[in-house]
Design a protein around this nucleic acid. Sequence first.
DNA 1: CGCCGACTTGAGTCCCCTCAACAAGAGTGG
DNA 2: CCACTCTTGTTGAGGGGACTCAAGTCGGCG
Lengths: 245, 245
Amino acid sequence: MTADIIRSLKIDCSCCPIRHRAVCAKCDTDELDRLREIKSYRSCQAGQVITLRGERLDMVASIVSGTAMLSRSISDGRTQMIGLLLPSDFIGRPGRAEAPYDVTAVTDVTLCCFRRGAFEQLMQDMPHVQERLLEMSLDELDAARDWMLLLGRKTARERIASLLSLILQRANLPEDLGGKNARIELPITREAIANYLGLTIETVSRQLTALRRDGLISIEGARGVVISDMDALIAETGDDDTLTA
Amino acid sequence: MTADIIRSLKIDCSCCPIRHRAVCAKCDTDELDRLREIKSYRSCQAGQVITLRGERLDMVASIVSGTAMLSRSISDGRTQMIGLLLPSDFIGRPGRAEAPYDVTAVTDVTLCCFRRGAFEQLMQDMPHVQERLLEMSLDELDAARDWMLLLGRKTARERIASLLSLILQRANLPEDLGGKNARIELPITREAIANYLGLTIETVSRQLTALRRDGLISIEGARGVVISDMDALIAETGDDDTLTA
DNA sequence: CGCCGACTTGAGTCCCCTCAACAAGAGTGG
DNA sequence: CCACTCTTGTTGAGGGGACTCAAGTCGGCG
């Protein structure tokens, strides 16, 4: 995100790309003005650590552009990704001074930051912010719980298939949802995929080639994946297809 | 929970056992009056299904007494428990007509139910309810994400150790937290434990006997567990002990 | 006593992990 | 341009941890 764009956002929230999905989605113009007074922008490079678990954190923030990942890890190096943060997603927790997870920028990231104290005060006065934050939290809770099923019970092949169809669902326009040959770009490295799915990079790699051998997908370079048989892929996710529609 | 107690709760929320922890925790007496108008009580027997994923759900509810479990499953029978609901925990989601998960009573359960439409209206008018629901949702989100680390990365032995120390933390008074020979009662069957930890009942059983052979715990009957070496057990959880304190 | 459900224990198998070598780019510097 | 390195990803061989299938134990209850 260029410095020019950020400069104009500082003055006016109305052209913000996440205006209608972020924590401020329900705010009217008066409320936006109050938010504007306490906001500031921050850029992070790909790979940079945004917060560390246990560290003091006096900000909360929305992701304006880029992708970040939430993770937890054990001292021996095992790491589990706990969530993927896309534009409009929220970082930090009102009412808590310590960061509960590690947050790392996957791509270059632009943040819209609020001082935590001021934001908490604002939430009291502006129910629209609290409402939206509740909605967003409940959505994340659902997503986390869906992921628990994957981590606890699915096979490696099912996990890969689930990830691919998840990315397709998010990234692709509804027009060709049923169409063949939808192409997606994996937003993250193999290592990040492995950490997301609770697998190793080798297993991820092997399962991707297995799906390719079986004719469900084809692979273009390291990151590109073409879904050649969408229905078969969904069948491989292991999900009860009566509800995923 | 006896019918007598429920009868008195219908009239007066102030003696409700979850008055200070449930979604109504922050309400003043006026607000409680409004809640009282739309509430009703419901009892479920142990083992009974409270909601089914995908089913229409026109209520939301707080657990007044008993234990219930949240789970998701795949058509071939694999099941993953997604959360344990204890008194004061909340069931259902404002703004959504379909139950997102299966909820099953583990013990006999008493629910304090609200019609969903009326509850949603109330939330608009009473920020205290919304505030509390947000806090509770964020706590559950943290718990779900902690569990993702366990499901994605921990060994069977670590999972069992984690569960035991979790139960001990919740159930036990802080007085003898460091003390030896704390006794806990497993609140659920081996099958439920397995579903919670993403394991099979056989593996759960084997790991429990392994911990017994190694002198960390001893087992009394099917449900009783005595922690003989608390520090060693915590060391086995795999958690980074610098933060769990 | 005999049955039933919950739990334990054993034997064998398989899936995924570990360790290791190899391939394909992308920079870097001469 | 090439040699070199570093990173990222693929592939193979082997081992181990958890699962599957099956039998056995224990306690409760009619």
